[in-house]
């Protein structure tokens, strides 16, 4: 279970977003921290092939993101900062079923996965409800449920707590740490990464620290506060 980032640069024109990045991601709990503009959001999008490297390559298991985008996205689920952005269908059950369907699963498998995930996230009672009318917390559950319905091996979270108050952020983080999947969390809320195995600090498109949470967070806080 490895995501390999091999000497990757991402640039447009003469602007460099990430420069010469090489990482071997195998831990179950990885945090990526950095300030706005550090390139962390781009790094997150490299992992499932939404963004492709300008140079170098990203390989998930045996799949290069450049040539096997669909296979990569089946393995690497992505939860966006804004839950609204990834709720694509009008009702809850239809939305959960969207991913499995898009990946071409048989109808009975789609139904089975949908049902399982809805139950797991306490959404079963809401299955015919309009997504539009869900509460903020319910929308977040739905966004995660929609991704887990794909049965990914990794789940990448792009700033999962930025739009939440402290209490909801804690709840969301508990849900994330309880996942059996490998988890990669991009955030600037460093306190959320305490129990993680590895934390990577990005600055201006480069890795400036790659260590245990204690060490990496200390480095980040020393530099910026």
């Amino acid at each position: 279970m490895t995501i390999l980032i091999d000497n990757v640069s991402v640039r447009f024109g003469d602007v460099s977003v990430l420069e010469g990045l090489s990482l071997d991601l195998r831990e179950r709990r990885i945090g990526i921290i950095g300030n706005n503009g550090s390139g962390k959001s781009t790094l997150a999008r490299l992992l499932n092939g939404l963004v492709l490297p300008s140079a170098g390559r990203v390989v998930v298991e045996a799949f290069d993101t450049r040539t096997h985008g669909a296979d990569v996205r089946k393995l690497v689920g992505f939860v966006f900062q804004n839950a609204d952005a990834q709720i694509v269908m009008p009702t809850v059950a239809e939305d959960v079923a969207f991913g499995p369907k898009a990946h071409g699963l048989a109808p009975q498998d789609v139904a089975a996965r949908t049902e399982k995930v809805l139950a797991q996230f306490n959404l079963a009672a809401l299955k015919d409800r309009a997504c539009f009318n869900l509460s903020g917390g319910e929308k977040q559950s739905l966004a995660l449920a929609g991704v887990l319905a794909l049965d990914p091996r990794w789940v990448v979270f792009d700033e999962p707590t930025t739009m939440l108050d402290r209490k909801r952020a804690k709840t969301a983080m508990n849900a994330i740490t309880a996942l059996p999947q490998h988890v990669i969390v991009v955030t600037h809320h460093v306190e959320l990464l305490e129990g993680f195995e590895r934390v990577i600090v990005l600055e201006a498109g480069k890795v400036v620290c790659d260590a245990s949470p204690r060490e990496a967070i200390a480095h980040y806080l020393d530099t910026y506060i």
């Binding site: 939404l50 985008g69 089946k74 966006f80 898009a102 794909l150």
Partner: peptide, 18 residues
């Protein structure tokens, strides 16, 4: 901006098998 995000969300969940 919001529909671009939606498009990214669509692809992340398997839309368009490219």
């Amino acid at each position: 901006r919001e529909t671009d995000q939606l498009a990214e969300g669509l692809v992340a969940r398997g839309f368009g098998r490219a």
